[in-house]
Amino acid sequence: MLILLLGTAGLAAFGFSQLVQDQAGPVAFLALGTGAVLSILILCGFYMLQPNQAAAITLFGDYRGSDRVTGLRWTWPWMMRKKVSVRANNFISDRIKVNDLRGNPIEMAAQIVWRVVDTAQALFDVDDYRAFVNVQVEAAIRTIGSRYPYDDFEHQEVTLRGNHDQVGSELRAELIERLAVAGITVDECGFTHLAYAQEIAGAMLRRQQAQAVVAARQTLVEGAVGMVEMALDQLSAKNVVELDDERRAAMVSNLMVVLCGERDTQPVVNTGTLYQ
């Protein structure tokens, strides 16, 4: 078509030169008119496609196909071309408040990498595919957020905080299903923000602190019981001292106080007998 454009432009130039040389005649007028009209028609049919760019072609409102070949392209001038980028787009959603499986309000935000795979669906099946992506991302986050609890202190359930990979995979599958109608796929997604809402953040922090204290106490008591048992067994095995049940209970009590106390104990020296 470039060669044809050069030919028609040359024909128009030939007719114009004949008119300039006062050699006006039917041949000159015909060459100038034909060359000019054909040159304009051919020139209007050219368009350019950049890498990762596509063009949807329509004829009087009828979809005729998509062109994904990059470079200088040409089609009939009366066929409309609408370009669509098929590059990857990175989108970070706003923080939204969601109720998790237990009804606790949490704040969530996600990062989505999406791209157009079907230009016809993106242009003609939805009104604005970019706005459609924004709305569906928020809807998918709310769906996934209400499907799982934020946290499980007993570590027996799938949670939003403890199972990022699994929850992220489900979010991606949910988005792909929702965006398929617009010819859009999701390459990657993940949470960028996940936390309790401000109105319950303080209460949940105290609960976590209490759970941590209980777990620490449990570990401390288990270790103290083992140490007391080991001390009594070694004293009995080496015949260091003979203790009756009452004095054995007193020694166990004193050792547990020493081992489980939060402050350093002050020793009391008994200068009398064992029973005074």
Rank of each mutant, 00 (worst) to 15 (best):
R115L: 14
K97G: 02
L101D: 08
V98F: 14
F124N: 14
D118C: 04
D118I: 08
P105H: 01
R115E: 15
N104K: 02
D127Q: 14
D125F: 02
D125I: 00
Q111K: 02
E107I: 01
K97P: 06
T119H: 05
E107A: 11
R130H: 13
D127Y: 09
I106M: 04
V113T: 14
D118P: 09
D128A: 02
R115I: 02
N104F: 03
E107K: 12
A122H: 08
M108T: 03
Y129R: 05
N104A: 09
V116S: 10
V126F: 05
W114A: 15
P105D: 12
A120C: 07
R115W: 13
D125L: 00
T119L: 03
D118K: 12
Y129H: 09
Y129A: 04
R102A: 08
V117W: 07
R102Y: 14
W114I: 06
K97R: 13
V126Q: 08
D118W: 14
G103T: 02
R130E: 15
A120I: 03
R115S: 15
A122F: 08
E107M: 12
K97S: 10
L101N: 01
A122R: 10
V126N: 05
D127L: 05
A109H: 09
V98W: 03
A109E: 05
I106V: 15
R102M: 11
M108A: 10
R102V: 01
D100S: 00
V98C: 07
Y129W: 13
D128P: 02
D118G: 10
K97L: 07
D128G: 06
L123N: 09
N99G: 05
T119M: 03
D125P: 00
R102K: 11
A122E: 01
V113D: 15
M108K: 00
Q111S: 13
G103E: 02
A109R: 05
Y129N: 03
D100W: 00
A120Q: 14
A122N: 07
N99V: 04
A110Q: 01
R115Y: 15
N104S: 08
D118T: 11
V116A: 14
D128V: 01
A120D: 14
D100G: 08
D128H: 05
Q111C: 09
Q111I: 01
R130V: 08
L123F: 05
N104Q: 10
I106C: 09
R102N: 11
V98I: 06
L101C: 07
V117I: 11
D127N: 12
V116G: 11
R102I: 03
F124M: 13
D127S: 12
D125C: 06
V98K: 01
L123P: 04
P105C: 03
D127A: 07
I106P: 10
V126R: 02
F124P: 07
V98D: 00
V117L: 06
W114Y: 15
T119P: 04
R115Q: 15
A109N: 04
N99E: 13
A110T: 01
A109F: 09
A120H: 14
L101G: 08
A120N: 12
V116P: 09
E107T: 00
A109Q: 07
